[in-house]
Design a protein around this nucleic acid. Structure first.
Length: 645
RNA sequence: GGUUCGGUAGCUCAAUGGAUAGAGCAACUGCCUUCUAAGCAGUAGGUUACAGGUUCGACCCCUGUCCGGAUCACCA
């Protein structure tokens, strides 16, 4: 039985025997005692003092005395205001530590006998990965690791958006301008290579569009729009935007804030692409050819996507993540129609006179939502409906976690409601792990303004920064070149990963590249360093032939030692909480706290100069256990630990 | 405009309805003849956006206001 439930039971008994009131476990408010007071756990007694009709202090004293007399694990207590601080005996903690030490799997919780799928990353194949994807990937990976540690059977998956007009744009640009070049011939990563052609398409398209804007047709569309638009209101908005841009030092030119520019850029672009653009027509034609299975088009599509996958896989490898199942939209985009048809029969959906199919979600405070176009083709959500059932057929997961940015909150709300209305048995296990966008200190990332941080560049940069730093320190000079490179890689990646994963997912975060390569303070390398210190003393102990499995007598813990044991004890709770809330930042913050406690312990107390041989062994054992938990916890975040640095 | 998520120190972030709201960065001060100073200790920095309410007790719950983001497509 854990000390927490021992205390809870004891409080329940105390309240019953002292005041004759029955309470449940959840009524016992138990929290770790604040640093400034003596104690390990604190019970808030305000609620009981009401039942007792005594002052909170008196109630606390009475309950405290009862617990102390009836619970051998509790040494002493103190009461401050309405707070009862309990001191757990050193013997209990020492006993706990030696048990934990014998558990090589400490941190792996018992099986929950439930399967959960974590779907993350899900990229488009027309652009390389960027900082936003990195947050997604790290979050998805660490969440999956946390869930596995919490006892779930985890399946990691992604859905690749490998089809559609976007990849056709890249294909077309390559056909027109590529001159038979390949990633190999250009010495480029495949995803960057293909991404470049997407950009080239956009450039050509803009050229074409700009020229067209001078035409008579363009002018008449503009005039038409001006007539039905509240221009004064728009002018005010544009003026606002201009002011803001000037503040953000992003001012372009006055022309960029004119209604004319606004119209062509924001209002008319899609229509031009679909109606007048030559390039647009060619891209659409390519999409049609692809859909009809035209051999040449499909071959080109396969070739270019192949390049992209090679590039992506390199990035995934650098990030240390993997997938158990990859879905391709090209295989799944027609899914879901049959479910819509069935749902139509069962009146889950309804059909409008134009034959388009809808669902009424006004009863759950959402809107009417289209699920099938009037021409019978599917929309985005149709696919997701089909995908949900497909996943269930293949994997039988009790839970599915979709790791997707918060701009799609509405989409998933709608999707989950539809699945419930369809009566899908797994509908209540669907969860959208929604995370905020990543901002730069200079503002939003926008590809149009060239402010996107490329994933591969960023990875290279953090490793370079770690390398520079270690060269400055000069302490690794005696390591081999390979060793040094490996250490720098681990340190740089730890800085990057920790910096991102320590933030609560649902918060929009500001990513300062400069700050992300910091190696001091609340960072990945700080935690790694505590592990390296532990590793160092353990090595020394082995060299000295010490036996660390020896059971030692020790009965008076130093505060720094108890602090460490206490935190080790709390580790499973951190995992449980992180899993329940799908929030790896809980583990990230936990690891930092533990590392911080260890650094203090290291500074304040000497291991090898301990008073007695027994204390020395005990501190080594304690350090070893801290090292185990740190490595385990950081692994859940996808962060590797170096042996030295 | 409707819906929704945020707003905590100069900056980046913590804080089950509980005690005096905590860390890190940046600034300033100390501590290496010792198991790795990527460390430790200290100083300074707060009307938790604002106004009410509920409560023994509110950063946290409720109402309203302000600011910021996202979303409200027969796009994905």
């Amino acid at each position: 039985m854990t000390i927490i439930s021992i205390i809870q039971k004891s409080v329940i008994e105390a309240v019953k025997s002292l005041y004759g009131v029955e309470i449940a476990e959840k009524d016992v408010l138990l929290a770790p005692t604040r640093k400034d007071f003596e104690g390990d756990y604190t019970i808030t007694v305000f609620a009981f003092s009401k039942a007792a009709r005594k002052s909170p202090v008196q109630t606390g004293e009475e309950i405290g005395n009862f617990i102390k007399d009836n619970t051998p694990q509790i040494d002493r207590f103190n009461v401050i205001q309405g707070f009862l601080n309990l001191v757990v005996s050193d013997a209990y903690w020492i006993d706990f530590l030696s048990n934990a030490q014998n558990d090589a799997q400490y941190g792996q919780l018992s099986p929950k006998n439930e399967r959960v799928m974590v779907e993350y990353s899900s990229p488009n194949t027309n652009k390389p990965l960027h900082l936003g994807h990195i947050r997604n990937i790290l979050l998805g990976w660490s969440t999956s690791k946390v869930l596995a540690a919490a006892g779930y059977d985890v399946v990691r998956s992604k859905v690749v958006n490998d089809r559609g007009i976007a990849i056709c744009k890249s294909m077309l640009a390559w056909q027109l301008l590529g001159e038979g070049k390949t990633p190999q011939s250009e010495g480029m990563k495949g995803d960057h290579f293909v991404g470049d052609y997407y950009v080239k398409f956009e450039k050509e398209f803009q050229k074409e569009y700009k020229a067209w804007q001078k035409s008579q047709t363009a002018q008449s569309h503009l005039d038409e729009w001006v007539l039905k638009t509240d221009i004064p209101k728009l002018l005010v908005e544009l003026e606002k935007k201009k002011k803001k841009d000037i503040e953000d030092k992003k001012y372009f030119s006055d022309d960029d804030y004119s209604p004319r520019t606004y119209f062509f850029k924001e209002e008319y672009k899609n229509e031009y692409f679909n109606k007048y653009s030559q390039l647009g027509a060619q891209a659409r034609e390519m999409l049609l050819k692809w859909e009809s299975g035209d051999a040449e088009t499909v071959a080109l599509w396969e070739k270019m996507n192949g390049w992209v996958y090679e590039g992506f896989n390199e990035t995934y490898k650098k990030l240390g993540v993997s997938f158990d199942k990859i879905y391709y939209e090209s295989n799944t985009y027609m899914l879901g129609k049959d479910i819509i048809e069935d749902g139509l029969k069962n009146n889950v959906f309804y059909q409008k006179p134009d034959t388009s199919v809808w669902i009424d979600l006004t009863d759950v405070k959402l809107d009417h939502k289209l699920v099938l176009r009037s021409d019978g083709t599917s929309v985005y959500i149709t696919q997701d409906i089909g995908m949900a059932r497909l996943r269930d057929n293949e994997w039988h997961c009790q839970k599915v976690v979709y790791v997707v940015a918060d701009e799609q909150n509405y989409h998933f709300q709608v999707l989950f409601e539809i699945m419930k209305k369809l009566g899908e048995p797994y509908a209540n296990g669907l969860h959208h792990l929604s995370y905020g966008m990543v901002d730069l200190p200079t503002g939003k990332m926008k590809s149009r303004e060239g402010t996107v941080v490329d994933a591969d560049d960023l990875i290279a940069e953090v490793i370079q920064e770690a390398t520079n730093n270690s060269a400055e320190r000069g302490e690794v000079a005696d390591f081999s070149i390979e060793e040094r490179a490996e250490i720098n890689r681990k340190v740089g990646m730890a800085a990057l990963k920790y910096h991102i994963v320590k933030v609560n997912p649902k918060k929009r975060m500001v990513f300062d590249p400069q700050e992300s390569v910091d190696l001091q303070g609340q960072t990945g390398p700080y935690i790694q360093y505590s592990y390296v210190r532990i590793n160092g003393v353990l090595k020394k102990a082995i060299n000295e032939g010490l036996n660390l499995s020896e059971k030692v007598r020790y009965d008076k813990l130093e505060p720094q030692e108890k602090d460490l044991i206490f935190k080790i004890y709390e580790y499973p709770k951190a995992i449980e909480e992180a899993a329940a809330t799908y929030d790896p930042s809980v583990v990230a913050n936990y690891c930092y706290d533990l590392a911080k406690s260890f650094h203090k312990f290291w500074h304040d107390l000497s291991i090898f100069n301990a008073d007695t041989e027994g204390v020395k062994i005990f501190r080594l054992q304690l350090s070893q256990m801290v090292g185990h938990v740190l490595k385990h916890g950081m692994d859940l975040l996808g962060i590797e630990m170096p042996e030295k640095m």
